[in-house]
Simulated scan of single mutants.
Amino acid sequence: MPGTVNIPGEILAALEEALKAAGLRLTHQRLEIYRELVAACDHPSAETLHQRLRKRIPTLSLDTVYRTLATLAEQGLINRVETLESQARFEATSRRHHHLICRKCGKIADFQWPDIDSAALPQEISEWGRIDLKNVVIHGICRNCLEGEEK
């Protein structure tokens, strides 16, 4: 199918196994939503994913996209990127990273920060309970928007 991303067998098997463990099947819609996220570099919203996928799956509802994204995030298969906008954005990645978000255009860029990843947490946070994830989100204005302001 044109525009379809090939998912490596081990990732597809992990997707299928995680859904099966949650008592869910790997449906055509779930697979296509996941494939679209694997191919995306722009951290799309549910609405953006829906628009892209309607070209391949005309009967796909926005509700199905929202429910599938919630399921995939709950199973740890995708990440939900919290933004200052009202719309959450999503990504499918296994590589540890953080995010830069432009307050003006909304573009999200990934970056790695090994020092933060390996840093010990302050004692009061360590005593809070179990920490599952450390994630840094930096908000600012990207170079393109800054250059646009100067013109």
Rank of each mutant, 00 (worst) to 15 (best):
L37H: 01
R52Q: 13
V65Y: 03
T68L: 08
T64D: 01
C41Y: 08
S45Y: 03
V38S: 06
T59F: 07
I57K: 00
P58H: 09
L31P: 00
T71Y: 02
E74Y: 11
V65G: 00
I33Q: 00
A39S: 13
T59S: 11
L60A: 03
H43Q: 12
L53S: 01
A39Y: 05
P58I: 09
Y66W: 15
C41P: 00
T64H: 04
Y34V: 04
Q75G: 04
A40F: 01
C41A: 14
E74I: 04
R52H: 12
P44H: 02
D42W: 04
R56G: 10
S45L: 06
A70Q: 10
R35Y: 08
D63V: 15
R52Y: 09
T68M: 03
T59N: 07
I57H: 05
L69T: 00
C41F: 10
L72R: 01
I57G: 03
V38Y: 02
A39E: 12
L69F: 14
A46D: 10
R35C: 03
L69N: 03
A73Y: 09
R56D: 10
L53M: 10
V65D: 00
K55N: 10
L62H: 09
V38E: 11
E47V: 13
H50N: 13
E47Y: 13
C41I: 09
D42L: 02
P58W: 08
T71R: 01
S45V: 06
K55G: 09
T48R: 09
V65W: 02
R54T: 15
L49I: 13
A73N: 11
E32I: 01
D63C: 05
H50E: 10
E47C: 11
L60T: 05
S61P: 08
L60R: 01
L37A: 07
A40T: 03
R35W: 03
E74G: 13
A39C: 07
A73R: 08
G76C: 15
L49D: 02
A46Q: 04
